[in-house]
Nucleic acid binder design. Structure first.
Lengths: 215, 215
DNA sequence: TTATTTTTGGTGTCATCGCTCCAAAAATCC
DNA sequence: GGATTTTTGGAGCGATGACACCAAAAATAA
């Protein structure tokens, strides 16, 4: 319960850090991403991170704390392309979502990291000791969904989305599609397949011309 | 490796089974469904099944073997409504898929069993010891997707689906949507929300009148 | 009742998991 | 170089996980 003091508590004197902390975190992230929280053991982690058990403890506190950090690191990383596309001011809402799904297809199938999404499929099972992590991942999913809803609302304000669109529901739909793409990627689907699915998914975009947003 | 002989090997003489095997299996299924394979412990299982460790071993062989059986039981159970709707001869393909998603929304949110789908979200993480289970679940997902593709092909043959439809891709899309609905259900989405998402998803159905199937 | 077959409780085992502690080493500032 | 501060390797620990075994009990056919 006491907030564990981690690496860098009294910097300026004494021995500095030897291993690259953010690099170790990145390795841990990839492992969690591929194997999930329960599927990744302490020994797996320190092996991949190249540090000892005590270094691990000193620097990251606990497996659960590391998982939170790794998740944050993933969000910072994936959030870059996600929000860059979502908030690009010069594209209309429909194009933004098409590009978003296209980028999703690409990012979910790159060879330099595990397939799919670290957030979409993690913490979906609920054993007693997993509630914290489950709730955390659930909140992250809700957050990205609400970001999509906000973009759709902006589309209405901009006049490029029909004014009677249910933003929350359309966001929930695209959120669900993205989760589904993650499962497909896990099952070995190619970028091309995900891309085609994305194209089909875009056919569900609200039909009809946008009405005048200025009422 | 030796195929373990389980309950009922030499029936007709001796003591008969005391506990209800299929009921115990059903309890195990619900536990696996909710908590996943790794999240469910041996003790959790025998507790929920109401049997001793040795009975467990005698009757089901191992945790992994039980998981396979529980998965089969789930497929038999969920396959009932799934295939009943998919193969109903009097509905056209589009209606079949609309009803399928509608049923999915309902089944994924019933109070009498865990939310979502036991197949959609299981075995998506790949630690070394989970490869068998991962592959098994992946195959089950591929199977349901191919069943959907077959139904769409039948729709083309019946003339109620445009002949130039890419059946495999459309099936992959609806498969992905179903997986996404499972995640949404896990995150606590209501039947109504899933139902609305399903309606949005149906807007992606191939547009245009069906061409004459008889070429 | 007896022989036969299967179930059961209880106990044990071996591995892994996630930590935890400690003494020694290393790198900085003075 | 010495003091200070932090990191590191290594050993160990309590808990849990997934079986595994066995003698005793129970229920049936004969």
């Amino acid at each position: 319960m006491t907030p564990k003091i981690i690496q860098g508590s009294k910097r300026g004197r004494g021995r500095p850090a030897v291993f690259d902390r953010s690099k170790a975190l990145f390795e841990a992230m990839k492992l969690f991403w591929e194997r999930g929280y329960e599927g990744t053991s302490f020994d797996d982690l320190i092996g991949a991170m190249g540090i000892s058990a005590s270094s691990f403890y000193n620097s990251f506190g606990s497996k659960e704390a590391l998982y939170c950090e790794a998740t944050r690191a993933y969000l910072d990383w994936a959030g870059q392309w996600f929000f860059a596309i979502l908030n690009e001011p010069s594209t209309d809402a429909r194009t933004a979502f098409a590009l978003l799904l296209e980028a999703t297809a690409e990012e979910f199938t790159r060879g330099d990291h595990p397939p799919g999404c670290m957030i979409s499929l993690a913490g979906t099972h609920c054993s007693p000791g997993m509630r914290n992590i489950r709730d955390m991942m659930s909140e992250h999913r809700a957050f990205s969904e609400s970001a999509m809803a906000a973009r759709i609302r902006k589309g209405i304000a901009d006049g490029d989305v029909p004014a009677d669109t249910d933003c929350g529901m359309l966001a929930a739909y695209y959120s669900a599609v993205a989760r589904g793409l993650a499962v497909q990627a896990r099952d070995g689907a190619s970028r091309e397949k995900l891309s085609e699915i994305a194209k089909v998914a875009m056919r569900a975009w609200p039909p009809g011309k946008a009405r005048d947003a200025r009422r």
